[in-house]
Simulated scan of single mutants.
Amino acid sequence: MLIKGYDEGPLVAGESLLARLGFWSNHLLVLCSDGSCGEPPSPECFGDDGADTDAMSEVLFDPEHWPAFRVPATDGLGAVVIYRNLVGDYGTDYLLTHPGRSYAQQVASWEAGFSGAGLTWQELVRIADNPYSAAEGVQDTAARLLLLLPHLMDSDLPTAVLARLTTALTVVGAPQDTAATTAEHLLAHLARRSRHDPTWESPLSGS
């Protein structure tokens, strides 16, 4: 698999992994890995268990296969999430695709923490809610939102965010009775990150 603009690693299409147990706990628990959320969610909060999470970790972090998740959008403003599985340098890279540009641009990464340019909530929702069915990639709006959630950096989130995130978590398999609490934990970390990095720039707004 090739993505123009990203020349590292043996990329493989990762979209089929989204429906497997253990994916969302692997992808989202990292947001609370520094303890800033208080008591962090467990794999069960995403509808998984520890065995599911461990088994999926072996797939997601395989140095021989780097899963790439394409998030195409109708207006051309899309994204790609790549698990960068260099031995000793594991991380997640976030790329954006732009109208009229034949290559993707890496704008951020997650290693021990987030670095690079973040998305505002409005920008994230614009990508999530406009899937491009004619292109290969993730089409489900809930999955698109959650894939890009670690890329969110917005110090002024609207009140509707909690309900939207709670709904998205239940769509991908999180238990309904704990989804709101899990969403609160994830948002607590994102809000803290925004306060600590007030000079972030949005890669879509031109700031």
Rank of each mutant, 00 (worst) to 15 (best):
M1N: 04
L2Q: 13
L2S: 13
I3W: 07
K4C: 04
K4G: 05
G9C: 05
P10I: 05
P10S: 14
P10F: 07
L11F: 07
S16D: 15
L17E: 07
L17A: 02
L18T: 10
A19W: 04
G22Y: 03
G22L: 11
G22Q: 00
F23G: 06
S25F: 00
S25M: 01
N26C: 15
L29P: 01
V30D: 07
D34F: 04
G35C: 06
E39P: 10
E39C: 08
P40K: 08
S42W: 05
F46P: 00
G50H: 05
G50K: 01
D52K: 08
T53K: 15
T53L: 09
T53S: 12
A55Q: 11
M56Y: 02
M56S: 05
S57F: 14
F61L: 15
D62R: 11
H65Y: 10
F69A: 13
F69E: 12
V71W: 02
V71D: 01
A73G: 14
D75H: 09
D75G: 10
D75W: 13
G76F: 04
G78T: 04
A79H: 03
A79W: 02
V80S: 12
Y83I: 01
N85F: 01
G88I: 05
D89E: 14
Y90W: 12
L95V: 06
L96I: 15
H98K: 14
H98C: 04
P99S: 05
S102W: 12
Y103G: 06
Y103W: 15
Y103K: 13
A104P: 04
A104W: 08
A108H: 09
S109G: 02
E111G: 11
E111C: 10
A112I: 07
A112Q: 08
F114Q: 03
S115H: 06
S115M: 07
G116P: 03
A117R: 14
L119S: 00
T120M: 06
Y132T: 03
Y132M: 12
Y132I: 03
Y132R: 13
Y132S: 10
S133R: 14
S133A: 12
A134H: 05
A135M: 14
E136K: 12
V138F: 06
D140F: 01
D140N: 14
A143N: 03
R144P: 05
R144F: 09
L145M: 15
L145Y: 06
L148T: 02
L148M: 15
H151P: 04
S155E: 14
S155C: 05
S155Q: 09
L157W: 10
P158Y: 06
P158R: 11
V161W: 00
A163D: 15
R164P: 00
T166A: 03
T166P: 06
T167L: 06
T167K: 12
L169E: 10
L169G: 04
T170K: 04
T170H: 04
V171Y: 03
V172C: 00
D177V: 01
D177L: 10
A179F: 09
T181L: 13
T182K: 03
A183H: 03
E184D: 14
H185Q: 11
L187K: 11
H189C: 12
R193A: 13
R193I: 04
H196D: 08
H196G: 08
D197T: 11
D197Y: 13
D197K: 11
T199Q: 14
T199C: 07
E201V: 14
S202Y: 04
